[in-house]
């Protein structure tokens, strides 16, 4: 019994070696698309002078969402600019937005599928648990192997981490639609598609919006870890501070992340509340 050992590690290594040889072109093209997107949005945001962006963001929040929050937006963005962290903030923001975009683009439809097919949900659940509990460093390695060091790997890691809440909450929101309403919809001869689009999705919207909020928060919390594989941004500031034992720099980067987190959280929270209110109307 002394040489009992399950060769899981070796198998996984072999599997990934094989994958890289066979599908490297596929991964390369995915990588290209993601990189262009990320770079594009980052460059777009950096194209404008900081004061202009700060004004636009704050005005949008001020006018469309809430006055107090608008004020908070101005102050925190100016603060970040004052810390000389503007390019990093924008880079982190771009990563989060791209991460959230893809998480939702994949997560919401997957959640809808899971809500419609019980078997699919049963298969999906352990996978989601796996994605959320697996230490993120573990999938940083394959991410780097497939997509190389840099922002794209960071984005993929963010995706894996941030997608589960979008899937879960979409599924949950749809499944929570009261049974009597489903019955009523069926009794009037609705097709499955009509029930989904006309009843389930509108009623699940507040829950789905909570999923969007969660998704953004998760993406943000990945930013430091993603910085380890070269994703840059505020995470990199924190990482550098750690390496050089520079407490001050660490605090600056940390506060930047916190402010960004609060800002994004409040903005999405307010938006989802508005959806909730529209529901109550």
């Amino acid at each position: 019994m002394t040489n009992f050992r399950i060769p899981l590690g070796e198998t996984v290594n072999n599997f990934f070696d094989e994958m890289i040889i066979r599908y490297s072109s596929v991964f390369d093209s995915i990588s290209d698309v993601l990189r262009t997107m990320l770079k594009g949005s980052e460059e777009f945001l950096l194209m404008w002078p900081p004061w202009f962006l700060i004004t636009v963001f704050s005005l949008l929040v001020f006018l469309l969402i809430e006055k107090k929050l608008g004020l908070f937006t101005v102050i925190s963005l100016i603060f970040m600019y004052g810390l000389d962290l503007w390019p990093e903030t924008v880079s982190t923001l771009a990563l989060i937005l791209a991460g959230t975009f893809w998480s939702l683009a994949i997560g919401v439809p997957t959640g809808i599928l899971a809500s419609q097919y019980d078997t699919f949900e049963k298969i999906l659940r352990p996978i989601l648990d796996f994605m959320q509990t697996l230490p993120s460093f573990v999938y940083l390695i394959p991410a780097v192997i497939f997509f190389g060091l840099g922002k794209v790997s960071g984005l993929v890691a963010t995706l894996i981490f941030a997608m589960p809440p979008a899937i879960r909450l979409t599924n949950l929101g749809i499944r929570q639609v009261p049974a009597d309403m489903m019955e009523a919809a069926k009794a009037f001869g609705s097709t499955r598609w009509q029930i989904l689009t006309g009843i389930q999705l509108p009623l699940a919207l507040p829950t789905i919006m909570a999923g969007v909020n969660q998704c953004i928060m998760m993406a943000l919390s990945m930013s430091v870890i993603a910085a380890m594989i070269g994703a840059g941004g505020l995470g990199r500031v924190v990482l550098m501070a750690m390496e050089t034992v520079n407490i001050g720099k660490g605090v600056e980067g940390g506060i930047g992340i916190v402010l960004l987190a609060i800002l994004l959280d409040r903005v999405t929270e307010n938006i989802s509340k508005r959806f909730g209110a529209a529901e109550e109307k």
Binding site: P178, D180, M181, E183, A184, F188, L203, E279, E280
Partner: peptide, 11 residues
């Protein structure tokens, strides 16, 4: 069909 709980669509 008419239901005990009304089952009206709140949205």
């Amino acid at each position: 069909m008419v239901f005990q709980s009304f089952a009206l669509f709140p949205h």
